[in-house]
Every structure is written in C-alpha cells, then in structure tokens.
Computed example of a mutant assay.
Amino acid sequence: MPNVTIFMPTEKMPPDTNLAELTDQCTQLCTEVLEAALENVHIIYVGVRHGRGNPAYAEIKYRLVPFRTQAVMAVFMERLEGIIKANTGLAARIRCFGYATQAIHARN
C-alpha cells in the first residue's frame, strides 16, 4: 500500500508516454510524501464510461500510520491533483481511504 487507482473516460485516456510520466510522478509522490516503500506502491488506470461529475476520479487506499496526518494527506492530494491535470488534462476528484494494519489482509 498505497494503491492509487485513477478512473477516466476511455476516450480521454492519454497516450502511453503521458501515463508513464504520470506513473513515475505518482510513484515519487507516494514514496516521498507518504513514505511508502517502492515495492508497496501500486498504480492502476481504469478506462470508464463517464456519467457525471469530474472527468477523472482518483481513489487512494493506504495504510494508517502516525506520520500520515491530515496535513500530510492534504499535501499529497494537492500535488496529486496537479500531476493528474498536467499529464491528462483532466480535473480529478480525489478520495483517500486509510486502513488500520489489522484490517488489511493481502497477498502478493
């Protein structure tokens, strides 16, 4: 963890070069701001049929730890918003969900 999933309209999905840059920047953001271990960062892009609201939606699931305070998450979301806009041209709604370690069961 963290898992970053970005949903955007399939027809507005940017070229692979933009997605590669977005991946690199999101990874750096997760390792620097959230202090996540590189091997725990997962980034996924999902093409969707857009219905209503912002054209992109970013959902971040992360492990609750003491240093990931509200202030840290605010910085993370502000920077993520800019990274998404710069690489896709889309405004994103961003939602972060923190999970206690004992509530996480995972493999691989």
Rank of each mutant, 00 (worst) to 15 (best):
P2T: 15
M8T: 02
P9Y: 03
K12W: 08
D16H: 03
D16R: 10
T17Q: 12
T17F: 06
N18A: 15
N18D: 10
L19V: 06
L19C: 09
L22V: 05
T23E: 07
T27C: 10
Q28F: 00
Q28P: 00
Q28Y: 01
Q28H: 12
C30A: 10
C30M: 03
E32F: 00
E32K: 14
L34W: 02
L34S: 05
A37E: 15
E39Q: 14
V41F: 04
V41Y: 09
V41I: 12
G47N: 06
G47E: 06
G47Y: 03
V48Y: 08
R49V: 13
H50T: 05
R52V: 08
R52C: 01
G53K: 08
N54G: 00
N54E: 12
P55S: 03
Y57G: 00
Y57K: 05
E59R: 14
E59Q: 15
E59I: 11
K61P: 01
Y62I: 09
P66V: 03
P66F: 05
F67P: 00
F67C: 07
Q70G: 06
A74S: 14
F76V: 07
M77Y: 00
E78L: 08
R79H: 09
L80R: 03
E81L: 02
K85E: 08
K85W: 06
K85G: 00
T88R: 07
G89I: 09
A92C: 10
A92V: 11
A92F: 06
R93E: 14
R93F: 10
R93M: 12
I94C: 09
I94L: 11
R95H: 13
R95D: 14
C96I: 12
F97E: 15
Y99D: 02
A103Q: 06
A103M: 01
I104Y: 11
